[in-house]
């Protein structure tokens, strides 16, 4: 079975997978560097909360604006890189040998909107952390939490919709299915007898 890769595939293979692999490497290294910088900087004593003064089974967050100040930029960048990591992975999975085809634009738009949603969450939180008075709620939750629950949480539905919409016409077409059936006929080992 072990024979060299076919010349046909070498001709048609685009550089997209290598570019996406480079992108993933840069994202992973940047994330590591970012976390190292955060770890080396002075850490607020209540950065990870403290025990509740009355109920010892609960933790309290403490002064939001103060503890957020030192990590706001790192946190925003870390979140942005994490989202980018998933978008690149998604693109790597959906690309064809010739590239991303019709998915290229919707994927870039999705990646930008996802980053915007993330930036919106950080921005709305900044206002929340700065104001110590009781806050208004939206659908049962304070505004930044509402952005987290009602915008960030469902956002992957956009990518799932792309997967559904482009599955038959780009990801795995009827001609791919026929080609695969030919491959199965050519390569598949005979059925093992029932034990």
């Amino acid at each position: 079975m072990a024979v060299p890769r076919s010349a046909q595939s070498l001709r048609t293979e685009s550089r997209v997978p290598d570019l996406l692999a480079w992108a993933l490497l840069v994202i992973v290294l940047a994330t590591g560097a970012l976390l190292a910088v955060a770890a080396l900087a002075p850490i607020h004593p209540e950065a990870t909360g403290s025990t509740h003064p009355t109920y010892e089974t609960m933790l309290r967050g403490g002064p939001g604006a103060e503890r957020f100040e030192g990590v706001a930029a790192v946190g925003w960048a870390y979140g942005g890189l994490t989202l980018l990591f998933f978008t690149v992975c998604f693109g790597l999975g959906l690309r064809r040998p010739e590239g991303l085809g019709p998915l290229r634009t919707p994927l870039i738009v999705g990646a930008l909107l996802h980053q915007l949603a993330w930036a919106l969450l950080v921005w709305v939180y900044l206002g929340y952390a700065d104001d110590p008075t009781p806050r208004a709620t939206f659908l049962g939750f304070p505004h930044p939490t509402a952005v987290m629950l009602y915008v960030m949480w469902p956002f992957p539905a956009y990518f799932i919709a792309l997967y559904i919409l482009y599955f038959d016409r780009f990801i795995f077409t009827e001609s791919d299915r026929r080609h695969f059936d030919e491959l199965v006929a050519q390569y598949r080992a005979p059925e093992p007898p029932p034990s």
Partner: peptide, 20 residues
């Protein structure tokens, strides 16, 4: 929120980096 706004904020008590 009245007890501790951070707990019901998007990062909870442990903060943004732990959440992420």
């Amino acid at each position: 929120m009245q007890d501790d706004p951070e707990v019901i904020g998007p990062w909870g008590s442990l903060g943004i980096l732990a959440s992420l």
